[in-house]
Design a binder for these strands. Structure first.
Lengths: 219, 219
DNA sequence: TTCAGTGTTGACTATGTAGTCCGTAATGAC
DNA sequence: GTCATTACGGACTACATAGTCAACACTGAA
């Protein structure tokens, strides 16, 4: 629509927006998202007010509404972002796993990394899981990223299963994977020290692979 | 303090309180708790207002404050209640399990039953898990029932482990049990039909046992 | 330099909710 | 019946928060 002059120097639409004004706006938006993530993970989505966010981002309140129309929109953006990150971690660059065990191992490793290095995002995704179940406006929109997350796991598993297996069974395994990993970490958080969590990863991996193959072989 | 006349006919302090007034109050309290549980599971703890609860229980607002001093107190009471129920389900009457497998199987079965027949409580416990992690007043008090829950699982497992095993390892297994089961069901809720969930239980049990023994045997 | 467009600000309004308080109804001892 | 005690009701206050808006600041083209 407007002048696209600068687009040539930055063909990737997202990377480097046209003018300085837009870049400033982009930074502001980023600051809002960062502050929101922090607050959400700290005191919870529901307990966080718009003012908490704007204060955290050190911007005026009106600015928030120039970038988002309400809190749910922020939550959604952050959840989608977090799912992207987690999914990204699940496929280490250029290493399409050849065997089922590798794939599962990669998935597990991705979750571990995510849990340890993106704790805020992990806590947010965990909260989102709850919102999903509740009769709230946002639940509808939140379903998509979580379905995508499950599908991603499925897609990594399905082609590597040797015998033809019921599609539903793959889905079950995906739920088990997702549930187990996030569930374990969530309880580990209160029951164990970070040190112990670290130590649990290796045996967990083994046990997990055992369970998965048993599951797939079972009736 | 007051007249204890009726106490003889009802020695169990909780069962049948002294007078009709107290019984009425007890019923009102129950109604408030029931309404709250319903709302919490329906729209979420944070999104539920005191008035939602009193309206659901069909009592005046002031009445609420005669029984509880705020919403957190209700949440705590309900969580403690739910943990009691879940723990109760884990030890089927007079059947102290003799082998580890049995114990694990009982635990799994208890969670399945709890998930299917006390869905509101399950959703509440899941929400409580989140609140625990957040920097909120209630988090402090909530920790106790969840620790109790983990301890109960531990106590069922520990005596049945054959070789002497590190206490920390038992704790890890407990976290895995708790996390896996609740995590799986929570994802199953969005990824699968109730019918499919039912069908998953048997293979899940097998896989789960395989994982547990692998885990205990591992380094 | 000017000026139009875009981004930012924070005071302001409107609304919803927690918690109080006093009047009323039920209870139970006498 | 009477009277003290306990439970209940719902209008009311005080406060916090969502969302708006008119003034202001920055940007960039002419």
């Amino acid at each position: 629509m407007a002048i696209d002059q600068k687009d040539e120097s930055a063909p990737q639409s997202d990377q480097m927006p046209a003018g300085r004004a837009q870049r400033r706006a982009g930074r502001t938006r980023r600051r809002l998202l960062d502050a929101a993530l922090q607050m959400f993970s700290d005191r919870g989505v529901d307990a966080t007010t718009i003012e908490d966010i704007t204060e955290g981002a050190d911007v005026g309140k009106g600015t928030f509404y120039r970038h988002f129309s309400n809190k749910d929109e922020v939550v959604l953006a952050l959840v989608e972002d977090s799912v992207d990150q987690l999914v990204g971690l699940m496929s280490p660059a250029g290493h399409p796993p050849a065997r089922l065990e590798e794939a599962l191992s990669d998935i597990l490793a991705a979750h571990a990394t995510f849990f340890q290095q993106h704790t805020d995002e992990f806590v947010l995704l965990f909260q989102g899981r709850v919102l999903l179940k509740l009769q709230r406006e946002i639940g509808e929109d939140l379903e998509a990223p979580y379905q995508r997350y499950l599908s991603e796991i499925e897609q990594r598993i399905a082609p590597l299963v040797v015998q033809p297996v019921d599609r539903a069974k793959i889905r079950r395994l995906s739920c088990a994977v997702a549930g187990f990993v996030s569930g374990f970490f969530s309880f580990a958080m209160i029951g164990m020290s970070p040190d112990e969590i670290e130590q649990s990863l290796a045996p967990l991996r083994t046990a997990f692979l055992a369970a998965s193959s048993t599951f797939l072989a079972g009736v």
